[in-house]
Simulated assay, not measured.
Amino acid sequence: MKCQACGSAHTVKNGSNAVGTPKFMCRSCGRQFVEHPKKGPIPQETKELIDKLLLERISLAGIARVTGVSERWLQDYVNDKYPHVPREVAVKKVQKGRLTIECDELWSFVGKKGNKHWVWLAIETDSKAIVGLYIGDRSRESAEGLWNSLPAVYRQCAVSYTDFWEAYEAIFPAKRHFPVGKETGKTSHIERFNCTLRQRVSRLVRKALSFSKKLENHIGAIWYFVHYYNAVIQVEAAL
């Protein structure tokens, strides 16, 4: 019996699995295996398909049904994937000058509706790219988190339009901050993106069973979509 991982013949019997199939262990690499496994490693093509499906409004159970992987394997896959998603915006460099951003907060929850987590977002009006993101409560500290997430050039030059939530006034520079109502249209782009985010990230859909149960995955899924969205925006701008 040769090890399926390293090819070593230095293997020994090592009990049986839950359905009684004999198991073996490789003395060289320590891997445990059965002689004729019913399922092999997940192909790279399947993983790439899963990465695309995670950007759509599909639950993990739905993705497992579509791709044929087990829900347990898929949960482990996203548990490993989301913590490694970068937590800062990736946008092209812009020159100092007149820049305009729109900011808003999006309600969400983790585990139960009483456990609220607000998604603070900033979008550049001209390029439509997300230039700031912070996930926290609805306090002044979270508004500061959004401000700190902005690239330096936006903190130095950008004019910002927000709603009348008082946390913005405490953090954003008064001379470049303008609280406005929805009827002005000055925050229409960020409000439209909020709708896009809810439509594409299933765990943000109101009144659905696809809510997050783990904060790390909640944050990772949102960042994962934002990075994808910004990449698409930059490609479209180059055409």
Results as ranks from 00 to 15, higher is better:
L146T: 09
K116G: 03
L121P: 09
V89C: 08
D80W: 08
P86C: 01
D80I: 09
N115Q: 09
N115T: 10
D137N: 14
D104W: 08
H117F: 07
W73Y: 05
I135W: 00
W147E: 02
T100K: 14
E124L: 09
Q75F: 06
R138S: 06
L121C: 12
P151A: 01
L121A: 03
G132S: 04
I101K: 06
S127D: 05
E105A: 11
Q156A: 12
G145M: 05
A170I: 10
G136T: 09
G97K: 10
G111C: 09
N148M: 13
G111A: 09
V78I: 12
Y154W: 06
V94W: 01
G132L: 10
W107C: 04
Y134K: 05
E102R: 14
R98A: 09
V91L: 06
K93A: 13
K112I: 07
G114F: 10
W120V: 12
L133H: 02
G145Y: 00
P83C: 04
V119R: 01
F164T: 04
E102T: 11
W107P: 05
K93V: 14
D137R: 12
E141W: 03
E144D: 07
N115S: 11
S160N: 08
G114K: 15
E144R: 15
Y154V: 12
K81T: 12
I130P: 11
E144M: 15
L99M: 11
R155I: 09
E144Y: 01
D126F: 11
W120R: 05
V153T: 10
W118T: 13
D76Q: 12
L121G: 07
G111D: 02
E141F: 05
V119N: 02
V91A: 00
D80M: 13
Y82T: 08
G132A: 04
T100W: 05
V89H: 00
G132Y: 02
K113W: 04
D137C: 05
I123W: 01
